[in-house]
Write a protein that binds this DNA or RNA. Structure first.
Lengths: 230, 230
DNA sequence: GCGTGTCACGTACGCTGTACGTACGTCAAT
DNA sequence: ATTGACGTACGTACAGCGTACGTGACACGC
């Protein structure tokens, strides 16, 4: 018996196996051993099917939230959970990312993330902003890692190796070794840590401000801010 | 006379006017008043044409680099230049982002960015990492802004407004006003500022470490770090 | 038995990218 | 002046696409 779930699963498998370009209704139908039009009894259109694929992948994000952990660690864990899924379904991730989906799938991650941020001491407005910034970073990173980089990220290596003119691009030329290689895990963790620390500084600044003016001038967040601005 | 540039330009215009889905070789040919196959005298395939589109858009990034400005401000300016282009060619930006291109177009931005980061005091390895992190954030932000959000970012607003169950998603439900609205400029600047500050803290920490151990324990970046970690 | 629904299917239409053959310039060598 | 090569534009043709539509097989409450 054909049903929506079987179709979506077949689509995900096909995407991972042969890439998003290989996906066609005929191909999926063949994969399932049914006629093409039978699919349309369960899925209104190909676009809707791809939306369902995105939703499906997103819903697979595993949550092992540990409420006893420090909020900074919980943020890291959630970011890594997202990333793990993307690595498990790399090609489908591209579908997720390049598709505007309006469903409530993946709302659970948002709920958890916002709760964590509220716990960290941010008000609603700030929590949402932090979340959006975080998602931007994670999504951007995945886009690079998963192979569909905007540009120049891990760089095509060998292909261009001799093409860069040191006179025109001295810095790029000098840093080529670092540009050519890219340890995705390290890079991700580096940015993650930077972001978490930045958030923590903000949180500390908030706490200071709320704790009253008296001790407000102590070193911590304040000095960090000053150093940053000048 | 037909040539590659006219074709690429027509493609970009068509994408912006009617969306990437509307792009077909026949459509572009019609737009230029030529036969379909004539295009193939100047462009090897549709995929190559889209690569050319990406390259073209990327090369339009305007650079008003001000070497006299503080490096933090230069970072902001470069990020905003990237973003401006994306807003000028929103639909083409999606093409840029969802396409692995290996050309050296857009290498100039990289050169400038790396130079700026070196100037800020980062070594090669760190500069590259900072750049990658930055690109990830900017690209992720643009993906959200340009309309093809991975998920839940500005949220489809009205459509879901009643759908969220406050019992299941208390925090999302509570923060709905903030989730529904999204001032892209503000959000972008918020994340940008956070990142720049985080980078500045890192740079300051580096400077401290290099300046010798004696004054290493002074307030600034150090205290900021401490606060962040605990 | 008989409507009424659901589900798988086949056919058909208009679209796609592009391989291939053709026809018409222009330029170089004869 | 004639010839040949070459580059460019074009038309035709083919395989594949998404999907609208109609048909037939089966299960159900009456």
């Amino acid at each position: 018996m054909l049903n929506r779930n079987r179709i979506v699963t077949a689509a995900v498998e096909l995407i991972e196996r042969e890439g998003a370009d290989a996906v066609s209704m005929r191909r999926i139908a063949a994969e399932l051993g049914v006629g093409v039009m039978s699919l349309y009894n369960h899925v209104p259109s190909k676009a809707a099917l791809l939306d369902a694929v995105a939703e499906d992948v997103l819903s697979r994000i595993g949550f092992t939230d540990d409420p006893s952990a420090h909020w900074t660690e919980r943020v890291r864990i959630q970011a890594r959970a997202f990333r793990r899924i993307a690595h498990h379904y790399p090609r489908s991730t591209m579908v997720v990312v390049s598709r505007q989906l309006s469903s409530t799938a993946g709302l659970l991650p948002v709920e958890r993330a916002l709760a964590t941020l509220r716990e960290a001491g941010f008000d609603g407005r700030e929590a949402v902003r932090m979340l959006r910034m975080f998602i931007a970073y994670v999504v951007g990173s995945l886009l690079r890692e998963v192979g569909v980089t905007p540009t120049f990220a891990p760089v095509r290596a060998d292909a261009i190796i001799a093409e860069v003119d040191p006179a025109l691009f001295p810095v790029v030329s000098e840093l080529r070794p670092h540009l050519d290689s890219c340890d995705h895990d390290e890079e991700f963790e580096f940015g993650l840590e930077l972001l978490v620390q930045a958030m923590a500084v903000r949180a500390a600044a908030r706490a200071d401000a709320q704790a009253g003016r008296g001790a407000g001038e102590r070193g911590g967040g304040r000095a960090g801010h000053g150093g940053a601005r000048q």
